[in-house]
Design a protein around this nucleic acid. Structure first.
Lengths: 232, 232
DNA sequence: ACCTGAACACCGTTCAAGT
DNA sequence: ACCTGAACACCGTTCAAGT
């Protein structure tokens, strides 16, 4: 059983080229790296969806043998975790939001979170099934601090956070799935039309067809925030 | 390519034993049936989770060859669709709810929906990714009718329905995932404790540990309903 | 009408090496 | 320190049959 790389090491070795190891003839970059693997995994997931990520395909794209991946990465689950976290980074609110505008800050972070997941539609349905990575924890920390500052009592904080989490995740997972399968959706509505006597109301309102997803998202979010921490 | 069974046939053949086919020596029940396959698939999913359902394992449990399944079922996706729908049936509100109490009716249906999915934790994360089956469409139809009766305008009906859908799905998917991995959750909180300087607020509030999921669900739901159709 | 086994083109991962 | 191929124990599904 070979000793494995510990996962805590990083890319700060370029300035100090001499190390404990014997001098290497050209100190060339290794072919593979954690970063390159994760970036390629995200590409593959974007292109082929969740079922399209395969250790073999991943190695192909990187021009390496399959088993070489396992030096840098524990297993396939690990690749999923890393790709997911890579996609969830938050850069903070724009300058235009004033520091005391807690509601603007919360809404911005949540909409940015949702947008990030929609840019990588596989990520939304993956997130609830994996351990929470550093980037999503940072978002939760920010949310927690902001709501606290807005006057939400400590005893209600967790319920408030999870309500928002639930709403964002539900909205995004649903939206991402519907996006992925435009024709499937059309056939669903078609099938529905044939059965319109069984589902007359949703037939009439064309529930499965034309929806203002973004508007609906924002509206429901406002209702929740009104309930959680009423406008002053 | 053999002709395939059409999927519309059902189990009303016991009273009239004579049919178009030549008389069979004992008219014995076929070994397999759509119903038996679906019921066994649900068992398997309950026991082993989403990754545990395998055509080979399913056939094993049924005491048949793998390929025999394909007579009754199109493919594995079909099995997923059928198992999912089987689990989502709604029997209607209890007698104790009065007919004009639209809010009670909505809350009962949504909580029953959530409870059904939690009884089969694989179902929640599956539902948004598959085409909507008859049982979930019936629930949406009921929801639509009830909200309409409660005075929600036609123009707002779809947004209202999707807000509720999003909330229920997000809450249930999250809850089901957290349930599945109690020790994973513990290690997550442990890892968090080590990093408590980075996430002090969620550390302090023990966000990842002790939560009143059911209470939080009900609270958020009330906020949404208040917003969607204010109490009279 | 219903069931079957062999075969194909895939998977993730272990192991024992190579440099 | 980093990369490799062979091998194992799995997958879903096609095909050409059997009764």
């Amino acid at each position: 059983m070979a000793a494995k790389r510990s996962g805590a090491q990083n890319k700060q070795f370029q300035q100090t080229s001499v190390r404990l190891q014997p001098v290497q003839e050209a100190s060339r970059e290794p072919l593979l790296s954690r970063e390159r693997i994760v970036a390629t995994a995200v590409e593959l997931l974007d292109a082929q969806g969740i079922g399209g990520l395969t250790m073999r395909r991943l190695a192909d794209r990187l021009g390496s043998g399959v088993m070489s991946l396992y030096w840098h990465v524990d297993n396939k689950e690990d690749v999923f975790d890393l790709a997911l976290d890579a996609v969830l980074e938050y850069r903070g609110p724009p300058q235009t939001i004033e520091p005391q505008d807690w509601r603007g800050e919360v809404v911005h972070m949540l909409e940015d979170w949702r947008a990030s997941m929609l840019r990588h539609p596989w990520s939304a349905s993956l997130l609830p099934r994996r351990a929470l990575g550093p980037n999503i924890l940072s978002r939760l920390e920010l949310l927690s601090k902001t709501l606290s500052r807005a006057g939400v009592a400590d005893a209600e904080l967790n319920a408030a956070i999870w309500s928002l989490w639930n709403y964002v995740m539900g909205a995004t997972i649903t939206r991402a799935s519907f996006d992925l399968s435009d024709d499937e959706r059309a056939t669903a509505q078609l099938r529905l039309t044939r059965l319109s006597e069984r589902y007359p109301t949703i037939e009439r309102s064309r529930l499965l067809l034309d929806n203002d997803w973004d508007g609906a998202f924002r509206k429901g979010l406002d209702f929740l925030l009104d309930g959680l921490a009423p406008r002053q």
